[in-house]
């Protein structure tokens, strides 16, 4: 479903990704691990075409991402749910409106939106706070809203970039459990993290990066 083929990315002649190859199948839960600056976030930015690659190709759900034009880009992004470390919620919209926004973009009716958002907020345990603005929510709650927004469009893949990076350990664990639950329902998950305890406890497929190269791609804990 998601294939990286000989992907390299340079910033001003400095290679941040060097000949990356991997394939993620539908329903997988994959950790992308490595130190800061190893290239985890760059991989995510390339998938959602926030940046262009230097060489190679990325294929996702029938899209050749490199060849995608500016007009088609929003449609690609609606098929990928992304959760960020800093949540990236719209501060002037309530939790409900933040989640609804993703559905409004794909022209769902108001009735469908209400039903879909209520369902997904209930799933992430926030139905009682749907009218709260992000600044009235805790960090964990904000991340749940972000997950709800990423999920509500029923995406092919949910990509989480350090989703627990700004959260307390106990809250982080809740978020991981939630992602695991979502994966068990069939959604593919790619999660970038350097939280070794999380990776160790989950024992899923791990793609480890170091200085822009894949140094490991196997199931297990953080350092295996």
């Amino acid at each position: 479903m998601l294939t990286f083929k000989n992907v390299s990315k340079n910033y001003k002649n400095r290679a941040v990704l060097d000949n990356i190859n991997f394939n993620i199948d539908e329903g997988e839960f994959v950790f992308l691990v490595g130190h800061s600056g190893a290239g985890k976030s760059t991989i995510i930015r390339l998938i959602i075409k926030e940046e262009n690659l230097t060489s190679g190709s990325i294929h996702f759900a029938g899209y050749d991402i490199e060849k995608l034009n500016k007009k088609a880009l929003p449609f690609l992004r609606r098929e990928i749910g992304v959760v960020f470390q800093d949540f990236k919620l719209l501060d002037r919209k309530t939790a409900f409106e933040n989640v609804a926004f993703a559905l409004e973009l794909s022209d769902h009716t108001n009735r469908e939106i209400k039903k879909g958002v209520d369902y997904i907020l209930d799933m992430v345990g926030l139905s009682s706070k749907s009218k709260f603005f992000p600044n009235q929510l805790s960090g964990g709650e904000r991340q749940r809203v972000a997950i709800a927004r990423a999920l509500v469009n029923n995406p092919h893949i949910l990509i989480a970039d350090e989703p627990t990076g700004n959260l307390d350990p106990s809250v982080s664990w809740d978020i991981i459990q939630l992602l695991n639950k979502i994966n068990s329902w069939g959604t593919t998950i790619l999660m970038a993290t350097h939280a070794s305890d999380v990776v160790n406890s989950m024992q899923k497929r791990v793609i480890a990066l170091d200085e822009g190269k894949i140094i490991r791609d196997s199931e297990g804990g953080y350092n295996e």
């Binding site: 959602i48 992004r77 992304v82 719209l90 973009l105």
Partner: peptide, 16 residues
């Protein structure tokens, strides 16, 4: 500006 960036990241078209 941040809102605009977020909207684009979740797939909003330029018109939206």
């Amino acid at each position: 500006s941040e809102d605009i960036e977020i909207m684009k990241l979740v797939g909003a078209t330029d018109t939206y």
